[in-house]
Amino acid sequence: MKPFTVLETPACPLGLVNVDTDQLIPARFMQTPRSQGYGPFLLHDLRRDANGELRSDFPLNDPRYRDCAIMIARKNFGCGSSREAGVYVLVDQGITCVIAPSFGDIFASNSIKNGLLPARLSESEIEELLAEPTVVDGRPIRVDLANQKIIAGNRSFDFDIRADWKKQLINGWDDVDMTRSYAKDIEAFVAADGGSRPWAIPRSPR
């Protein structure tokens, strides 16, 4: 995974509340192999009108935010279904940071595994950021993970992120490699556990 350091791009002021993963990617697209790229499915049904045409009044379709790698939303972003494809659509679209007051639990941990930073600001700071002319005009804002700062115009916000997630993003770490370094501990656990919980192994019915 690519280490996450500093992002400096326009930010898409999505502004929606409770964007669940069904909205991030409607279920019907989830059969697609990832190799085809999930970007076009991002917020598919919200971005388009009844005829499947891109809605010009939807922030993501606005030319000002075309090159955004950052998105700003209201509370509970990524709630609902655990589908990791909710993160793939963002990452494949080039969005590697979402700023919101709160995130769905599973979405947030999925995002770390895919190098996407879920940055938390308070609800009032989000309102300020959404109204900030730099954001509205589609000029770049700066997300600095090491210092946990978002700089938009001459405003600066300190954002929240779990320390371990920050470390993982900055290092571009992969979970499996980390776990494998504990192979001995796992072996020892299994040896001790088997004796004490024999019922934990499923029986094989005829």
Binding site: R83, E84, K113, D164, D175, V176, T179, R180
Partner: peptide, 20 residues
């Protein structure tokens, strides 16, 4: 509890999972 696709891969490979 429910897990994401990368976690599915992790559990498949290690039969363990990181949790806070």
């Amino acid at each position: 509890f429910g897990i994401g696709a990368s976690e599915v891969a992790h559990v498949l490979m290690t039969q363990t999972i990181w949790q806070s």
